[in-house]
Design a protein around this nucleic acid. Structure first.
Length: 185
DNA sequence: AATATAGCCAACCGCCACTGT
DNA sequence: TACAGTGGCGGTTGGCTATAT
């Protein structure tokens, strides 16, 4: 599929950040024709993007039901629980967090949770901590309590943060909000 | 005030599974 | 059955922003 761009049209494929104009084109096109068949959608809409790029942009950013902003403590708990259960099955985890995308959850995990895990490991490296598989893919735990049991012996710092409701979350506002974009329609 | 460093996140890449012909 | 096209997923990266020095 995505094996190499080799014809003359592919030479014009745009990459990098999406512009507001491109966003509007994509939103309008999907509004009129629906989503799916992304390659032909990209061509028909006149976007110099791959179908994959259009799909990703729509699913992760432009969809009206995408929730932006802070991950709530409840969502953090759920992510921890589901990750303990399924490992890095981000899309599966995302299905249980309405409005959240797999990409967002993946980024959240990598930037926030893994950071804490690393710190915990560094902190305890002089102690008895053992190497841990953060994928947790083999774990069959099924509840938050189980997840806590699974993670907390190794990463107590993380669960302390949860318990105190002080898990560090910074605001992550967008340059323009989706309300702004949709209001332009 | 200028520069260096760290953190965050949008987007791309490569692989695999599914479907239609 | 084999092949090509497409969609979906997880991993990775590049650039922007915030913070520290």
């Amino acid at each position: 599929m995505d094996k190499r761009a080799c014809n003359s049209q592919d030479a014009e494929v745009r990459k990098g950040p999406w512009t507001l104009e491109e966003d509007l084109i994509l939103i309008n096109y999907i509004r009129n024709h629906g989503e799916g068949v992304w390659n032909s959608l990209a061509r028909s809409a006149g976007l110099k993007r791959t179908g994959k790029s259009c799909r990703l942009r729509w699913l992760n950013y432009l969809r009206p039901d995408v929730r932006r902003g802070n991950i709530t403590p409840e969502e953090q708990h759920l992510i921890m629980e589901l990750h303990a259960k399924w490992g890095n099955r981000w899309s599966k985890i995302a299905k249980h967090l309405p409005g959240r995308t797999d990409n967002e959850i993946k980024n959240f995990w990598r930037t926030r949770i893994q950071k804490h895990i690393k710190r915990a490991e560094t902190f305890s490296s002089t102690g008895q901590i053992t190497e841990h598989n953060d994928q947790a893919s083999t774990s069959q735990t099924a509840s938050f309590a189980d997840a806590a049991e699974f993670y907390s012996p190794t990463y107590p710092e993380i669960f302390e943060s949860f318990a105190g409701g002080s898990f560090p979350i910074e605001p992550s506002d967008n340059i323009w909000s989706m309300e702004d974009i949709w209001s332009l329609q």
